[in-house]
Design a protein around this nucleic acid. Sequence first.
DNA 1: TGGATGACATTACCAAAGCC
DNA 2: GGCTTTGGTAATGTCATCCA
Length: 311
Amino acid sequence: MNEIVSIDHFNLWSFDLNLLVAFDALMKERSVTKAAVRLKIQQPAMSHNLGTLRTLLQDELFVRVGQVMQPTHRALRFAEAVEQILSRTQQAIVTPAVFEPDQAEQIFRIGFSSELEVLLVPRLAAMLNETAPGIKVLARAVDPELVHKLLDDNVIDLGVGCYDDGNNRHRRTLLFEQSLMCCYNPELLDLPETLDRDSYVGLRHALVSQKDAIEGCIDDALKRINVRLDVSVAAPEFLTVLTAVLEAPLIATLPTRIVKRYAGLFGLATAEVPLDLTVSPISMVWSAASDNDPANQWMRSQVTRLVSAYS
DNA sequence: TGGATGACATTACCAAAGCC
DNA sequence: GGCTTTGGTAATGTCATCCA
């Protein structure tokens, strides 16, 4: 088993690694002049390189035998290591960075607003299980006000939710516009099929809130139209809000996608929101530093594809 | 003929000073 | 405090030449 040796950067810095290239050329050509031609430098420059190598390695390295520069025993041993170093370095330089999802082993940390977490994570899990079994997703609810800091601190790789542009360290793409619907338990609330504004405002409400404010995520939209709701329950998870509505005579105002997907499962009735509520669109945000990272690019494309399947 | 060496030119690096 | 400019120094390369 190879011993792992820590790199002494200071000593390597003081040793010009181009000397290894010069040494390799000398080994292959067995001639200072031909080695110089190979590296497209003049013969004296190569001679200087050989002189420096002789000083650093405290060995003649090459001795002239007739027309040939014959390597010493020390040079022959050194050559094996140099060959490996240069060939691996060249391979690392010329091999483009590619991301192979079926081979990759990686954990993606994605911050979601709770609607997107509920809608996307199950499909993301199914997709990864099928096409990229080594990739895992660590999902977490992220406050819109914190998402850019979490990206900066490398706590999350992507954010998907109701997020703004951030600054020039961040990138954002719009995924879809949001709309809202209401749902309630028809056994606890006797409401007409079409709700009017006064009836809606007069009810007790359950809302999703990832902030301290009980008015929840639609707080700004309500303020714009000068409406205040009587909020009985505000919780960060949609599931909590849906079960609250199931148990209590409350009405929930939630993203249309959530209502259409889960209201039926809970036996809840649905209704249009009788207010002109304009809420922020759903975006995906990431750090500029990971903009060209193939793995991050791949995950962004997968999220975009899964989201478009809902549209 | 081919490697080694001295003189000179160019380039890179570093530290100090000035500016915002 | 951070960035840019400037001048000094060291490293590196080329040319010319010497020597084995």
